[in-house]
């Protein structure tokens, strides 16, 4: 579903991403781990066509991103570190707008409410302005947008950083249920615990290179931390 082939991004002589090869199948949750500036966000931005690849290609659902920027975005959902919504609109109105932009105008108000509800926004919060929402609530609206869009692939950029443990765990549950329905997930994160909990695969990035990849089934939590530190120092 998500595929990177020799994907490279240069800023001048600086290699932000160095020939990344990656393939994420439906139902897989691939967690990218690594220090700040290792190339995790760059990877996500390349899949979103927010930046142009210097060489190599990113593919979504078999389509080249650079050549089909709009078509590929129909399959993608994006949840940044901070889901920023229109503050003057309610949660429902935000969902309605972004779903319309995603060309899914078929939903009734009730259906939209259900999406928000299932994402964990309480009934009374749905009609409140987003300016009163906590970060956790906004991330959940992000999930609701992804679900309503029927995205086949989810790109997450440190979505749980700064969330309290409860919100973080609720968020992970939502992710699991999405991947259970066959959504391919690429998540950049610093949270080793969440990576182990929700991920099916983990990859370590260092200076733009993917230096190791493992399935989470192969490793225990303690091992993951050890491996991570080993790769970062090595």
């Amino acid at each position: 579903m998500l595929e990177a082939i020799g994907l490279t991004k240069l800023y001048g002589s600086f290699k932000a991403l160095d020939s990344l090869d990656l393939s994420i199948e439906p139902g897989q949750v691939f967690c990218l781990l690594g220090a700040n500036g290792a190339g995790k966000t760059t990877t996500i931005n390349l899949f979103l066509n927010f930046i142009e690849a210097s060489s190599g290609e990113a593919r979504v659902h078999g389509l080249q991103v650079a050549e089909n920027p709009l078509e590929t975005k129909k399959h993608l959902a994006y949840i940044p570190e901070q889901v920023m919504l229109y503050r003057h609109l309610t949660g429902l109105e935000n969902l309605e707008y972004f779903t319309a932009l995603a060309r899914h105008e078929e939903y009734s108000q009730d259906q939209l409410r259900r999406f928000l509800n299932e994402a964990g926004i309480s009934a009374d919060a749905i009609d409140r302005r987003v300016s009163t929402y906590s970060k956790g609530m906004r991330q959940k609206v992000g999930i609701a947008i992804a679900v309503a869009k029927r995205a086949k692939a989810l790109l997450l950029d440190e979505p749980t950083s700064g969330l309290d443990p409860k919100a973080s765990s609720e968020f992970s549950e939502l992710l699991k249920s999405m991947s259970g329905e066959g959504v391919a997930v690429l998540m950049a994160t610093h949270d080793l615990f969440r990576a182990k909990e929700t991920g099916t695969h983990v990859g370590f990035m260092k200076q733009g290179r993917l230096v190791a990849r493992l399935t989470t089934a192969e490793i225990g939590h303690a091992d993951l931390e050890g491996l991570y530190l080993e790769h970062m120092h090595g």
Binding site: K74, M84, L85, L101
Partner: peptide, 12 residues
């Protein structure tokens, strides 16, 4: 405000 990225993640 951050909404541009979310809007442009949609097919527009």
């Amino acid at each position: 405000g951050g909404t541009l990225a979310l809007a442009l993640a949609q097919p527009i």
